[in-house]
Each structure stands twice: as structure tokens, then as C-alpha cells.
Design a binder for these strands. Structure first.
Lengths: 270, 270
DNA sequence: CGGAACGTTGACTAGGATCAACTCAGGTGG
DNA sequence: CCACCTGAGTTGATCCTAGTCAACGTTCCG
């Protein structure tokens, strides 16, 4: 049925290609200056204002990165810490068979926490959409952590969140079917876009290409396409121009074997 | 060909079942007292003797755990840190489809580093062979870390090693074939048994059941059996009574796409 | 207008899963 | 000492999930 697509009114807006050019993606924070979602996040966790101001002042540079551009290079041990301000990115490793994405990064996420302590980075970070990244000197960040226990605690908390996410990723890759993995990813991102405040009434923009999804799911782009179509056809999700709408969260969560995150918005550090 | 196995002289000792009872597995450290391989490891990294003595003195209990027994329970946030003194264990998470093992633990490994900082454990730890585990109060360990920077650095280093291992695990699960994963596991363990000083001239004891291997590889026990047989038949490994001998490391590393660990025996902390 | 990037669809293949039977050692209990 | 059971591994047959190859539709963009 090449391009017929006459299945009637529901759920099947063709979901054709959308631009990943420089205009379409969400630009939070009203006016002019670069809004820092990480600051918000830290404030909510209870990091004191002095520390926040210090961190903000420590921003050496705000880089703009085009789609597909490298934010952090694999292996390299720079003395810089990168914070994602706008756009989506992915953390990945290379294997002979291709690329395995470890995590999608959303605004407010720290790209390369490990640089604070490890000499080698096991992964790289690349831009999925055009991104804005705040660059800090890792020395400064370490100093801030030393000076403000609340900062140290927050960073440690982030590190453990990352690790927990990686555990869940491994579980998905090892023990879930393509269907399950995809459903799980959709649930995950649903939750995270809400947490990051970039959702919109039960829908969210998922700028990742089907290739990108294949990379994180351990699948092929072709199979992602098919599986996605199946979920659409069953009326579980809607998908137009990269905007995901979850139509039946319960069913989706069920086939995903998804457990919502514990309410540990405030990471239990120490 | 049920139980014929007449393929001649090479590589095909039937590899039948071996006991996992309480007698067969390596008991390091000659005589009577419980030898602590972690202490050795820390000493090599350059942790000072005072700190080592303190940690050793902090051992509240040495527990013996039978095959299949729980060393650390999932989810539970105990105020105890567990160090594997003898035997093999595995760190795992549960998923609807079964268990996904995240790592095999060898003597000298810390079972549940996260308990030092996180309230929730994403994983459990179970004994693959009979194990001896040193139990410490996490408060004491935190105090030791605070008092001795070298201890803090070492712990942080271990945390990053764990994380790096997890990254490689995810890559394997997502992007390697069964053959590749198995070959990779064999190379990995080759390296780690050497590092832990429990190898024997190019061979090592791999006490894990084929079920255990299936759990870490994201496969079925049946498929592990077949894949293992293929590797044996091709003369890449020998396998008798759970003793692995690598016959052609280069070939194995090639099909595994294996990169030997960086010589960061001394983790580059700070 | 032509090309590139993204997505869809079909036909075919292959890599693992599943189900099931059977072998072999070690224990256990009579 | 033997009968029996259990846990581990092997092997075969069959099915199905996902990969591969390829063509084609769109949309965007230069």
C-alpha cells in the first residue's frame, strides 16, 4: 500500500518529515538572555542562591551547536563541563556494529558529569536538534561543590540518576521486545518532558529521528518505523510532525512494563 | 546426535555439569583468617595503611552466603556496605521478562556502592557460588572517606568503573550479536580474573551457570549453550568443568570487538 | 529543478526464542 | 548400595522477531 494511507480520520495523519532546521524547536525563557533550566532545577532541589549565582557567573561561554554537531567528544578529557540549555542531545558510544545511544538529554541536563572526576569519557554527546550549551570550567564547578555542600549533593544526585537510567536502559536492551522498548521510551520521555516543563497537555515534541530512536533502542530505523506504526494503528499514540500524543497511557505502560519514577524529585543524598 | 560426541580428541571434553557445592571454589589466602582482597586492591592504588586498618577494623560481620542466596536486596536501602571477599556474585535487576544481570562481581568488588549515597537501590546482588561477604556500616565508610582523601578518591574511582562497565554492557546488549556478546564476556572475564589474581595460566574458573550467562547477555540458556558450542567447535576456547581456556585470544577479541581496558589500574581521580 | 534527509512499505532472510526430549553427574534417603 | 531426584547442559524442530535490501514518497533546501 504505497502511500495510499486512506484509513479514515483517526490517528493517521501521515506523520511526514519535519524540519530539524534552526527555527522549529522550543525556545524557552521569553525574551533575550539565555535562560538556564539547570538553575531552576537546582533551586527546586534547595541549592542556595549564592551558589546558584556563582555557578551562573562561572559560565565561560554559551555555544550554539547545529543538528548532528558534537557537543562533547568521546574519550577526550576536557577540563570543561557542558550543560544543555536548549534543544535535545544524545549521549552515545560507538561499537563496531554502529552507535549505541545511552540517553537522550533534555534542557537542564548535564552532558558530561564524569569529566569532573574521570580522565576518560566513555561516551560522546551529539546534538539531536540545534542546541545551546553552557560551558563551565570544571575546576570552578569543583570549587563550587567544595564551597557549597548543597551543590556537591546535587551533583552526586545527578550522577546517581544517570546511573539508574543506565541500569534501566540495559534492562530494556536485554529483556524487552522492540514493542516494549519503544513503548517504554515513549513513557519515559512523557515523564521527563513533564519534569523538564517542556510538555504540552499530554503531548510532547519528540525531535529525535527514527534513526536516533533506533540508536537508543538497539533496533533498526526500519523496525522502529514499523513498530511505531503498529502503536499508532492500535490507537495507543498519535504522532504528527514529531509531536507525540499518548492516547492510552495505561495500555502503553502495560506493554512497556513501565514503572513511574519514584517521587524522589528531591534526591535523597547523604 | 544425542550424546554421541565422538568428534575426536580436540576441544571436546564433554563439559558436563560441575558442582557448585561448598567445596570446589577457590579459597584464596592460605590459612585461617578471612583474607580481604579489597584491602590489597586499595593498597595498590595507594591508600595509606592507617585508612586500610581503619576500614578493616570497621568490618561488622563476615557473612557466608549459599549459592543463589541474596547478598543485597533490591530497593532496600540498608545502612550497610557489602564487600565480596570470596566467590562470585551478580548484580541484577528484575524486569517482567525475567532477570537482567548488570555485572558479575569478583572477590574484592564492592557490591552496593550506591548505598553510600542513594536511598533506593536499583539492583540486587545474588551469590553465584558460595560467597563470603564483609559487612560494614556505611556511616563508618563515609567517615573514613571524609578522614582520608585517598579513600574517598578510591571509592569515587570504583563508582566510575562501575558506570563505565555499565556503559559497555548496554553497548553489548544493544549492538552485538549473541556470538559477539559471549566472546566479549569471555574476554572481559579473562582480563578481570587476571586483575583479581584468580586466573591460572591463560585459564580461569567461570563458575557461572549457562543460565547466569544468559541473564547477563540478554539471551536464553539454550542459545548460550549453542553459541558456546560453536566457539568450542571453532577451536577458539576450551571449556571443561567450568574452566575456560582461551585458545585464540586474537580471534576472540576480533569477533567480540573487544578493547582491552586502559592501563588505568590507578584510577585517575580528581 | 535536483538532491538530500526522513519516513514508509514490501519481500526475504537470519538470528534467537520456544518447546520438548534426553544425558549426565551429584546428592539423598531408603 | 541402590533407586531416585534434581540441577545443569545438549540437541532437535519449529516459529517468530527483527535485520537486510531495495524501491519509493515527501518535504525541505540550495
Amino acid at each position: 500500500m504505497p502511500q495510499a494511507e486512506k484509513r479514515g480520520l483517526c490517528t493517521d495523519v501521515p506523520a511526514r518529515v519535519a524540519p530539524r532546521g534552526a527555527h522549529a524547536w522550543p525556545q524557552r525563557g521569553g525574551g533575550a538572555r539565555a535562560f538556564n533550566p539547570l538553575t531552576e532545577r537546582l533551586r527546586r532541589i534547595g541549592v542556595d542562591e549564592a551558589a546558584l549565582a556563582g555557578l551562573d557567573a562561572g559560565i565561560v561561554e554559551v555555544r550554539s551547536i547545529a543538528v548532528g554537531g558534537q557537543i562533547v567528544r568521546e574519550g577526550k578529557a576536557t577540563a570543561r563541563l557542558h550543560i544543555l540549555l536548549e534543544g535535545w542531545a544524545c549521549r552515545y558510544t560507538r561499537v563496531a556494529r554502529g552507535r549505541q545511544t545511552l540517553a537522550f538529554l533534555l534542557p537542564g541536563d548535564i552532558c558530561d558529569l564524569d569529566t569532573l572526576h574521570a580522565a576518560l569519557l566513555e561516551y560522546g554527546v551529539a546534538a539531536i536538534t540545534p542546541c545551546k550549551v553552557a560551558v563551565l570550567r570544571s575546576d570552578d564547578v569543583r570549587r563550587a561543590a567544595a564551597a557549597h555542600p548543597s551543590v556537591a549533593a546535587a551533583l552526586l544526585g545527578f550522577a546517581f540518576e544517570d546511573q539508574a537510567a543506565l541500569v534501566r536502559r540495559a534492562a530494556s536492551l536485554g529483556r524487552r521486545s522492540a514493542r516494549g522498548r519503544l513503548a517504554h521510551l515513549i513513557c519515559e520521555l512523557h515523564e521527563r518532558t513533564i519534569a523538564a516543563g517542556i510538555d504540552a497537555e499530554g503531548s510532547y515534541l519528540l525531535p529525535a529521528t527514527q534513526d536516533d530512536m533506533a540508536d537508543i533502542l538497539g533496533l533498526t530505523n526500519v523496525h522502529v518505523s514499523r513498530t511505531l506504526k503498529a502503536l499508532r494503528d492500535e490507537g495507543l499514540i498519535r504522532l504528527d510532525t514529531r509531536c507525540v500524543t499518548i492516547l492510552d497511557l495505561a495500555a502503553l505502560a502495560h506493554i512497556a512494563d513501565f514503572t513511574p519514577a519514584a517521587p524522589s524529585n528531591m534526591p535523597e543524598v547523604r
